[in-house]
Design a protein around this nucleic acid. Sequence first.
DNA 1: CAAATTTTGTGAAAGGAGTCACATAATTGA
DNA 2: TCAATTATGTGACTCCTTTCACAAAATTTG
Lengths: 213, 213
Amino acid sequence: MKYQKIPEATIRRLSRYSRCLEEIEQAGEGVVSSAQLATRCMVNAAQVRKDLAYFGEFGIRGVGYYVKDLLSDIKKILGSNKEWRMAVIGIGNLGSALLSYKDFLKQNYKIVAAFDIDPPSVIGRVSEKLGKPVEVIHINRLKEVAKERRIEIGLITTPPSEAQSVADLLVEAEVKGILNFAPTQIIVPEGFVAKDVFFTTILDNLAYLLSNN
Amino acid sequence: MKYQKIPEATIRRLSRYSRCLEEIEQAGEGVVSSAQLATRCMVNAAQVRKDLAYFGEFGIRGVGYYVKDLLSDIKKILGSNKEWRMAVIGIGNLGSALLSYKDFLKQNYKIVAAFDIDPPSVIGRVSEKLGKPVEVIHINRLKEVAKERRIEIGLITTPPSEAQSVADLLVEAEVKGILNFAPTQIIVPEGFVAKDVFFTTILDNLAYLLSNN
DNA sequence: CAAATTTTGTGAAAGGAGTCACATAATTGA
DNA sequence: TCAATTATGTGACTCCTTTCACAAAATTTG
């Protein structure tokens, strides 16, 4: 398997295959063909095979793919077979929601810390919402706590005006991955990865499609 | 301006230009060049011009673009110059968060209704969080209320098991646009538009980049 | 007022991504 | 054991997107 640049679209689809394979596994199927998986994921069957081909050979000709093995292989590729430790910074409405959003927790993405500039005002609300309350810590302890708790991903849920400075703090704390929910573009140095999640972009997209169809 | 299929990537970038232009307008700039806008949006300058060229000519050679006019034109293209009336279905943690998420409201996307299968248990929480409380209505009144309040977009924030049946209800109520936050793929008939927002897909993406760099 | 400068709009080239079609390999059944 | 069947892996092709490069148009300067 020699090196090649992997398209981002391929990675997104692998995540989709992963979700579908979990459903297929739940349903008790032991083997699945690229055609079946493709139908379920609403993509082309050749696409499924091409995507997998970037990383090796996982199927058996004339048979298909062993569901359990393929799922495990894809998770290994994505890096979603390990546990990822995350922190939420900015415990407003969105931050609180993420803290109690079950679908993060059922997977291997664990929120193990919460930070805010004004912790006392939010401590009550947060612990009330969770079985295991996450203590909200003052942001000036971020670097220290990030080391202590081996945090690898930071979720920025502050107002946009604070997003970049929070990103800078995360970089300083060597938190390599950032997911930014604030509606402003943030910049991080080489070696760090930042992804933006702009609800308004998605809504604009929807608005366009609704206006022009 | 004759018809042509517009790439989805172009629409996403227009939304980005729109956000950047608002910042530029705030900063008091009257004119902007494609190069300046491109730098700010972290894209290629020719890309900016090509994207705009799909819809007409908006600039002046040797000068650039009038910020106010271009912003207004882009909003017209996206359909984000009009007010969009939305409903949230499923008032759990995420639904509540969306209800009080300021960045929806500051724009032209207005949440004007909230539905749940068990309204009494959530009425208190929601109204407490908002200046103008949105009454949570039982889902069996969705069709009726959607008509009444002219709802055009539905935000699905139910558990995944309910997502498709909620989507079916929205289709029945002729709500043409759907934004699905539940981690399961939903299907809608021709003439309707559904977009999925999967946090785990984005996290998987981040995990991959962190694992392989 | 004409030459120099700036910046758009766009045809052409380059680069990626998705689909097709088929050789290859495994399995099944007679 | 061999033909028929099934489904993968992949080279070739097509389609779409991005970037380059330059003519055209507006402005500025001497």
